[in-house]
Write a protein that binds this DNA or RNA. Structure first.
Lengths: 251, 251
DNA sequence: AGGAGCTTGTGAACGTGAGAACAAAATCGG
DNA sequence: CCGATTTTGTTCTCACGTTCACAAGCTCCT
């Protein structure tokens, strides 16, 4: 994910279509905040209002928005609808993106059932699984299809985004097939590090990792003193039956 | 999440229990990589091996590990089991953390069904929902209980981590109840910005946002030229029926 | 018309994170 | 026992991200 085109010193490569990655990650948050404000019938909002709604501070928000252009009015604020459209356009959710979900286990099921998908810039065009027992099952108004059909589906529906909700084992193979079929963006829920060629973007969502990060901070809060300083050599006999940490929510 | 205790210049507050947040976020990844190596029967690994398995570069990995102490051997590498234990201890997953899941919709169901939970340092002690139709339903070997019982469950089982998988609407109220009951770490899947008092850690997982970030990059790849430069004033009549972007995988 | 009062957009300072490069320390072979 | 080789731990430098602070610009009131 080396996407910042760094060319020369100065501010982090502004203008000419180079928005910092950290800003890109926040644009969807602003978009949601604007949608909420819009739904409340609010027509204009200051950077302070928006920042509160989005959970960031106002300076950061203003700087982020400044990468897109000057869409505010000094002394007044931002027109909610107008800014919302501009951000949606910048992100690319004014058009619909075709998505396939591969791996219809618990999580794949949950995502497939999630109704608020089609109305948000993304359209699930296929649910795929290699398990013959699952193929044919109906979920909502869709039917699970055979993973073997991947290539023709990607071609027919111009799919550019794939979601992997398989267990860890087959994830890399599924990923390779997706890439070979022409998918260039992948959202991975399997607890493995996937490798993809240049030009393919990949993002990972991992429940176990999130929980472990919380656990780290939690440990700090409760027994700051209960934590032994640095036990140089823990009992070796206990090490083979450690809880097998390191898994994930693969299916 | 202002957790770095910055006191004076120099390297980012090393030693005395101050591990940079970016490093903390990678420790679980290393843990998983070590577990995989261990399962393959590999006893020793160099920083290069580990870095490859974890999907980072070796300099970063060595620096990250150096915050924990000197657990490697120069000229040799790291003892896989030993390092795994040290990281697990640092994160805090050598003990078991009690977790409650609130909101048993599609996603809550999926998480509840996910079997590989108990063996990884986290133990689901309750599935809660306010909907009487759901209360009593069996999922695996657990039964959905009434959200009203939250306080007694948190107290009885010393729950410190809560997972919110409700829709956006009730999420803040659920969050407040969790905090009031004594939960100090929250993992939020609802598509809203939750506010919590100091001392409570919160992390967010949001499918919509991940997809939107992918869409942004995807848009760059395909029509670099198809994208109009900066349309200053889009047709106003089209703006009210924009796809209502900004939702999430709230349930 | 002109000044008071807001609010944006941005330049500059600061802090954090990443990567290159190398000295220190361990093993191994002769 | 010593030098060659390997690999860690750490230092230094650069890039990135965040925050402060303020000039520029807009509206409204008198």
């Amino acid at each position: 994910m080396t996407r910042a085109s760094s060319r020369r010193p100065g501010p982090p490569t502004r203008t000419e279509r180079g928005i910092p990655e950290a800003t890109v990650a926040r644009l969807p948050v602003y978009l949601r905040a604007l949608t909420a404000l819009s739904d409340s019938g609010i027509a204009t909002a200051s950077s302070e209002d928006l920042a509160t709604a989005a959970g960031v501070n106002s300076a950061k928000l203003r700087k982020d928005l400044s990468y897109l252009g000057s869409y505010g009015t000094r002394g007044v604020g931002y027109d909610v609808e107008y800014l919302r459209y501009q951000i949606a356009r910048e992100i690319g959710v004014t058009q619909d993106w075709a998505v396939v979900i591969v791996g219809i286990g618990n999580l794949g099921h949950a995502l497939a059932n999630y109704s608020g998908f089609g109305t948000r810039g993304f359209r699930i065009v296929a649910l795929l699984d290699a398990d013959p027992n699952l193929v044919g099952e109906r979920i909502g108004d869709m039917e699970v299809r055979d993973f073997a059909q991947l290539e023709e589906i990607v071609e027919a529906d111009r799919v550019s985004i794939g979601v992997i909700t398989t267990p860890a084992g087959p994830a890399q193979e599924v990923c390779d097939r997706l890439v070979a079929a022409g998918v260039t963006s992948i959202l991975n829920f399997a607890p493995v590090v996937l490798s993809v060629p240049d030009g393919v973007d990949i993002r990972k969502v991992d429940l176990s990792i999130e929980l472990q990060i919380l656990a780290y901070h939690e440990q700090r809060k409760s027994g700051e003193a209960a934590l032994p300083q640095v036990p140089e050599l823990p009992a070796m006999n206990g090490m083979t039956d450690l809880p097998s940490v390191g898994g994930g929510v693969g299916a």
